[in-house]
Design a protein around this nucleic acid. Structure first.
Lengths: 338, 338
DNA sequence: AGATCGTTTTGAATCGACTCAAGCTGCGGT
DNA sequence: ACCGCAGCTTGAGTCGATTCAAAACGATCT
């Protein structure tokens, strides 16, 4: 329970606290003999620098918060790994916070992170328009939006979701599908809305194709199963022949529902997912999916943040946008006779 | 960039800093009129309490660190969700840190967490025997081992891995398999070693059964694929007829390799995984797997930690052990003729 | 008016580490 | 013997919030 402070180290080493601080921060300016004495004292006491006190003076910590919509979604795990990789190189710690698409939990996490004076926050917001984010930036905590485009008030890294939705829908249309279900999530989530808009665009451009909505209030596999059951229950004549899912968890759930309801994939129902998480390729029927550069997204977010922190004055907010691409697998392999 | 302090609030509200602090912490003892003036000032300045300074005085923050071996493994995502659920109820924040089974990264995360004076640390250690963990506890940061039993120096929550390994192996033996491959991970990881020991026990008890080792240096799907390719390359006579994988990621990779090599599952090769992550049921061939109470593991870990923090004196370290159970699915469904 | 008591408010001390101007030492040069 | 200087070390002041003994206030009673 003994919490040692710099003062005790100083006493044991028979030097002043200033010297101990120097040993810790600029060892080269301390005489070797003194330095050795201080190190001995540190070892003997098991002293650990109190970052709390340190950053009180210094102002900000070397921690960045990454707030994600769902830790259970491997997409975010991969984004986190990308972020961690670059942060590590800059001696910075990434802490992962899970909002679970709940605005209240998101707010509490943001409060906590701001109160802790983290170096910056990377966030995939539940609601990108929330003034809370602008406030944060205004009060001095840099924010980078992840997987969601900003309006100029902050940096952002994103993937072109409209384009992703469009190529996915275009692919299904090209395969001969004329009734396509869009399986989305909560309407407040921007990514989902954009993917849907992209799909709608492709449908309109094609002509003679219908886009039905089968959205759920969540973006989980369980929600996907529920959506699948609903769609499977439709009379065959009205039932869509393809589903475009807003993420792979939904798609996997949807796929399971098809199997449970005795519909074949892709024969009776083609499926395209989104994110191309590793499990998509390993599914019962390997899933076609829109691939996003997941690690790169996280890595770039940290890059932008470090840039902003390093030169707050001359920094200009940037919006980086990556291109998605479609990976076609068995779940949408068949060509439908028109 | 304006970081408002309690002092500025005090000036604007024309009271002393002590009063502002009282408004923040014990509003009931402040006269209503004064309280209102202070709140107005807080709102006007957009003041946010600096937790760093606060905890310098108070000692510890209301954050617990959860250090996991692999964020990309859904098993840990579920543990994290269990931990978060209970922590939330106690107004405590969980931050997730990823060691990626790298002892160095683990050490850096622990250093950071200790320096930040977190309330406590939940960890699935790369090496449970490391003195670093005992040091932490000795210096006043409570530690709870997750998914790994402790020796009495700290609390722990775990699942009986020997039993898990044993029932998995017994199941395969009962299904008629006589050559079983154990696909493990790095030998330092205790869970893996225990599962293997359990399997070895079952094999020995049965007699006439061989346990081959096909361990990899990682616990990822990619490692599983590599292991699968190696095993598939063996001449059919020497090739095991079943694989027991130390976790589901390995099992999924192994399964993919079987498909790629033209071996049927479970016909040519039965597979049993471990953890029963959600994706196991959705795999190309639904995976049999040893189920662990994932959320409960996280929840209980937080419970033990809160207990220790609340009554440091009277606290006695506890080791909680849960029982795993086997979920049989298609990947090990067939009975082999002897 | 003065004493008394309860309610509010005050402000100095404190937590641990950092910074920096000022002080100390010892050495070489004159 | 004295000066200058480089190399080290010192210690007071600071960051922002909390705590708590003491002061201020105001209402009530004699």
């Amino acid at each position: 329970m003994a919490t040692r402070s710099i003062k005790e180290v100083a006493r044991l080493a028979r030097v002043s606290v200033g010297t101990v601080s120097n040993v810790l921060n600029r060892p080269e300016i301390v005489a070797p003999a003194t330095r050795a004495r201080v190190f001995d004292a540190i070892r003997e006491l098991g002293f650990v620098r109190n970052e709390v006190a340190r950053h009180l003076r210094v102002g900000r910590s070397r921690t960045v918060g990454l707030v994600v919509l769902d830790v259970a979604n491997p997409f975010f795990a991969d984004v986190a790994q990308g972020a961690e990789a670059l942060a590590d190189e800059h001696d910075t710690m990434v802490v992962l916070c899970n909002s679970g698409t709940d605005p209240n939990r998101e707010r509490r996490h943001l409060d906590q992170l701001e109160q802790q004076r983290v170096m910056g926050i990377l966030i995939t917001p539940v609601d990108a328009g929330s003034p809370r984010l602008a406030d944060l930036a205004a009060r001095g905590t840099p924010v980078v939006l992840v997987d969601s485009a900003a309006t100029g008030l902050q940096c952002s890294v994103a993937v072109d979701d409209r384009l992703g939705g469009q190529i996915a829908a275009a692919h299904l249309i090209e395969r001969g599908h004329r009734r396509i279900a869009f399986v989305g999530g909560p309407p407040s989530i921007k990514q989902v809305a954009d993917r849907r808009a992209g799909a709608a665009g492709a449908v309109e451009a094609a002509g003679g194709v219908e886009l039905l909505d089968a959205s759920m209030p969540m973006l989980s596999a369980a929600a996907g199963r529920a959506a699948g059951e609903r769609v499977a229950a439709l009379p065959p004549a009205e039932r869509p022949t393809a589903a475009l899912c807003a993420n792979d968890l939904l798609a996997l759930g949807f796929l399971q529902a098809m199997a449970a309801c005795g519909l074949s994939v892709p024969g009776d129902m083609a499926i395209v997912g989104y994110d191309d998480i590793d499990f998509a390729a390993a599914a019962a029927v390997p899933l076609s999916s829109v691939r996003q550069p997941r690690e790169l997204l996280g890595r770039t977010a940290v890059e932008l943040l470090l840039e902003e922190v390093a030169h707050p004055e001359r920094h200009r907010h940037r919006q980086v946008i990556f291109q998605p691409d479609l990976v076609v697998r068995e779940s949408s392999a068949l060509r439908r006779r028109d």
